[in-house]
Design a protein around this nucleic acid. Sequence first.
DNA 1: TAAAATTAGTTGCAAATGAAACTATGTCAA
DNA 2: TTGACATAGTTTCATTTGCAACTAATTTTA
Lengths: 163, 163
Amino acid sequence: MNNPTVRKKRMSGSKVLNDFDLNHFFPYRLRVLDRAVSEAISSVYTSRFGLSVSQWRTLAVLGDGGVMSASEIVQKSSMDKVVVSRAIKGLQNRDFLKRKTDINDRRRVVLKLTAKGKRMFDNLVPLVKQLEEECLRGLTRAERATLDSLMERIRANTDVVLQ
Amino acid sequence: MNNPTVRKKRMSGSKVLNDFDLNHFFPYRLRVLDRAVSEAISSVYTSRFGLSVSQWRTLAVLGDGGVMSASEIVQKSSMDKVVVSRAIKGLQNRDFLKRKTDINDRRRVVLKLTAKGKRMFDNLVPLVKQLEEECLRGLTRAERATLDSLMERIRANTDVVLQ
DNA sequence: TAAAATTAGTTGCAAATGAAACTATGTCAA
DNA sequence: TTGACATAGTTTCATTTGCAACTAATTTTA
């Protein structure tokens, strides 16, 4: 990836130049990959079914008959609560889910996919998994496991960076 | 990562459920990691130097003594030309770069860091590389190379997915 | 060479985002 | 109890984003 030490280039004279190449900078490469994969996958539910990324994710978390509140979706999806709130509103407008105020805690709103929402989910899952597979095509099972583990180790490191 | 075949869960009765877990869905994991790393790195130039991500990248591409047009920056950074145009405007407002219309092709505007811009670049590069290193901490040289290669293979696959 | 097509870069606009403030409800401590 | 704090979720607002349309300059074509 990149040499830990800060490399410098010494010029013919005395000036020292920082040797920085954006294309070998991990955070940049990661974002480029994320954009590419995200674009490849989201095309299905965006153009063919008119769902936003956050709506798809909300649908995915509610999955099969899952009954949960908005804040549980926030927790499971790592999305912002505003984003989740609006995704729910959008899904409700299209009758993909129904809301019911929790009787025991009237601040909570419990969510559940409707039959229509479940059908959308059932249609979408195989398509989305197919595209995921196309992104990972050519990677062996072992390579996928390695990637998974490397990514998780880096993610854990970021917890430390951010105190 | 995820089994290529679409797995289904057979329930006690006869219903078949899609077995979908967002947390083991590669595009989702990738976005979570990107957010985490991006947050960890951008904190330096955002909060300490008031640069946006696109401004930092523009600075990084221009680097030491680089002289190029906006469209070359677009090409080297994979950013949208609108984003680059606005990043340039912001950097120019703070006297980090100067623009000069190309005499041979007066549509082109040639860009170059000022002394002040170069100082910012020189300050930033070691800090940013340090944070990159913290994200990758614990990964051996070989593991970094593996990660790099796996990421590039996936990125190349997305070209195919998008035709 | 005049019209058409291309290229560089900017601006307008509409959608997505998320921090902060807000409403409503619930819990805890004195 | 009741006043202070906590939690669930929504709304407001300011910022970021990027497509599309634009201006300006250049190149190609007929």
